[in-house]
Every structure is written in C-alpha cells, then in structure tokens.
Design a protein around this nucleic acid. Structure first.
Lengths: 122, 122
DNA sequence: TTGACATGAAACCAAATGGTTTTATATAAT
DNA sequence: ATTATATAAAACCATTTGGTTTCATGTCAA
C-alpha cells in the first residue's frame, strides 16, 4: 500500500492486542520485522500486516537498511487519544462529578438490594 | 450475543467512531436508545448493537424504565486506557526521552542539533 | 381494547480483519 | 557463484464487524 494511506486511524490501530504489544516492543528500541516476529506466535507476514496498519496510523515508520526493514515508534499520534481521553477525565477526577454520578444511580442500587432480599427469603 | 459476554474490551469499544459519538452523547445525559439513534444516520438496531459492545466493555449501562431502555455513561474503564497511554507520554512530554529517540534512530541530524541547543540553554 | 411506540431477537449480508501459504526478489555471507 | 536471509506481494480463508430487514413482545395512551 501507498505510504500514509490514511486507512486506519490511531483508535483502530491500538484496538488489537498484538499491535499494542508491537508498540511496546518498539518503545524500547527500533527493530527489524523478523526480530519483532520472534516475540509472537504467528507468522512474519501477519506481523508485517500489523506493522502496515500501525504505519497507516503513523504510529511507526519503517526504513530499509540492507535487506532488513527497521521499524521505529512514532508516538505523536497518541496525543489525539490523550486529547480524546481528557474530555472524559472529569468524570473520574472531579469528585463532584463522581458524586453526581453516584447520586443519579442510587435508586437502582436500592432496588437491586430489595429484590435480592426478596429472592433470598423465598 | 449473550448478556455481559465480556467479549469486548475498552480498546475495541472505542475503536469505532459511531461508538465514540455515542459516548459523547451519553456524557451529557443519559438517554433512551431511540433518542440516541436520532443522532445517527442508521437504524435503531445498529445503535442497539453498538450499545451492546459498549456495555460489554462496561462503558455504559442500560436500565429499563417503562418501555424505554435508558443508557448511561460509565467512564471508569477509560482509566485503563489512560494507564496504557501514560507509558507512552514520556516520549512526547519528556524532552530527554525525545532526544534519546532522535539520537537512536533519526536520519535527520539537523533536528538533533536544534533540540540539543534548546536543552543546552537551560 | 386497540393502536402506537420502544425495544428485543433473529436471520441475513457485504466488507473488513487477522491469519495462513506460496512465490518472487533483493541482499549478505561463504 | 551459490546459498541462506529478510522482506514483499498475492491468493486464499474463516471469523468478526457493522449494517440491514423482519417479526415478536411489552408498555403506554386514547
């Protein structure tokens, strides 16, 4: 595929556990495909495809060195994720918001307890 | 699909743009399925399935009120995402780590020089 | 009671996903 | 020059995904 085919975004890219593990590997140091593959119970081709997805999301980039293709982490796109997350942080960082959430759901909890007790007595 | 099938995790759940938009809607206030659906160009059934995925990831929960099923945001699982992200933040927040990355693997040595000078001024 | 409304459940479908195997090509090492 | 290594490219495959349509069921309103 063409470079930066923009087919996959960062949200999709990190959805797969294998790809997340690849990113973690590359966080330590850049690596050729075959060495990355050695950490997984699947074929080199499969890993190459995962690298392509990561590459489309611009989370990694590969350069050819001799007969090897060496991939390295390119973490900048993760800032998009961080931004997205920051919107929701208020729901667990702001105590008032958390409290509000609890208050809103308290009726249901009472209901649940009562039902459980009734069931137990029978 | 079976209820609470624990089939989807938070990474998968937020991978889909529609589901992210649903979360944002529910961040404002809890809503019944049909009202959520009114914000999207797709069927109620499709939205119901997205809600199921979000529910499996425990990002939302639904309770039946009369003939409506009202869904509410449950943002706690996003902390897992935040934790995951925090590991990578050093690569763009910590200048030394960024520099280390450039030194280790960059073809662009001009960038290296600029970053070094900035660091030296301290 | 009779509709209308809100959802649930199931069958179906095309496309995407995550893998495989096979074949080809360029580079490195002997 | 030959062989082993590293990757690329393509065909193929099963399952999942993201949607649809249809039909059934429970609840509210007139």
């Amino acid at each position: 595929m063409s470079p930066s085919a923009q087919k996959h975004d960062v949200f999709q890219a990190i959805a797969d556990p294998t790809r997340r593990k690849v990113l973690k590997l590359l966080a330590e140091k850049e690596l050729p495909i075959s060495e990355i593959t050695s950490h997984f119970p699947m074929s080199r081709t499969a890993i190459a495809k995962h690298l392509q997805v990561l590459s489309e999301a611009e989370l990694v980039s590969g350069r050819k060195v001799g007969r090897e293709k060496i991939y390295r982490l390119h973490p900048e796109p993760l800032t998009e994720l961080k931004q997205w997350l920051s919107f929701y942080e208020k729901f667990w960082e702001n105590k008032l918001s958390i409290l509000k959430h609890i208050v809103e759901s308290s009726e249901d909890h009472r209901l649940l307890v009562i039902k459980s007790e009734e069931t137990d007595k029978k």
